[in-house]
Simulated assay, not measured.
Amino acid sequence: MTAADHPRAAQPGGFSTLLDDQLCFALYAASRAVTQRYRPLLEELGLTYPQYLVLLVLWEHDSVPVKDIGVALQLDYGTLTPLIKRLETSGLVRRERSPQDERTVQVSLTEQGEELRVRARTVPQAIGEAMALPPQDFDDVRRILRQLTENVSR
């Protein structure tokens, strides 16, 4: 019996309880595979994947309030603070209270953090090559995943 012949198989446009029919599992497996592919590249830089994401935000914006990093990465303050503290301990970022609002913690790159950006420039290309998607498919997948995130987050 093939998966399509299974009594719980999805009908066209329908849903089932078969693992292969679950979009959530396809997303989970793809996320794990991509994150696993990042690991050796980021280990060379002394970073974890979540630390890399924080640095991507900072490389784009230079100095950012912790709250804005959390919004960009969809991470809560409790998850984000230890990541930033580890980056600070590594000498890549510094945290400072905003002079305008003492409650706001601003995160900025150090010179060492800026230098790491140069070394990290090969990472996106290596990941893109590992994905082996034509440019249009890459753009389509990213667009669909963003739409899916927005829809599910409502």
Rank of each mutant, 00 (worst) to 15 (best):
T122S: 13
V34N: 03
V57M: 04
L87H: 04
G78Q: 15
Q36K: 13
E114M: 13
Q147D: 04
D21Q: 07
W59G: 12
R121K: 13
A4G: 01
L92H: 11
T81P: 01
Y38K: 02
P82E: 06
E96K: 12
V93T: 15
P134W: 00
F15W: 07
R86D: 11
R39S: 10
A72R: 07
S16E: 04
A9K: 08
I144N: 02
L42H: 07
K67T: 13
T79I: 12
Q51A: 10
E111Y: 10
R121A: 14
A4C: 00
E111Q: 12
G13C: 13
R119M: 10
A26S: 12
V54L: 09
V54T: 03
L83E: 14
L148M: 07
R154M: 03
D21H: 08
V57G: 04
G128D: 07
P65K: 11
R97G: 08
R8D: 15
L56M: 09
Q11L: 14
L75F: 10
A9Q: 05
D139V: 11
R143Y: 03
S108D: 08
S90C: 05
P134T: 00
R146F: 01
L145F: 03
E102F: 06
T35G: 00
Y49F: 15
F25V: 08
P12R: 09
V34G: 01
L23I: 05
E129K: 13
S90G: 09
P12W: 00
Q147P: 00
E150H: 02
R154H: 05
E111K: 09
A3F: 06
A4V: 09
L109R: 03
E60C: 05
V54P: 01
T48E: 14
Q106L: 15
K85P: 00
A33P: 00
L92P: 02
K67V: 06
T79D: 15
S90A: 15
T89N: 10
Q11M: 10
K85H: 13
P124M: 07
I84W: 04
D101K: 07
G113H: 08
S153E: 01
P135Q: 09
T104P: 01
L41P: 06
I127V: 15
L47S: 03
P135H: 08
Q112F: 04
V152L: 02
G13E: 07
L116P: 02
Q136K: 07
R37L: 11
E96W: 00
L19A: 15
L58R: 01
H6D: 11
Q106S: 08
D20P: 01
L109Q: 05
V93I: 13
L58E: 02
L109D: 03
A9R: 12
T79Y: 15
Y52K: 05
V152C: 02
L41M: 12
R117C: 13
E60S: 15
R39F: 10
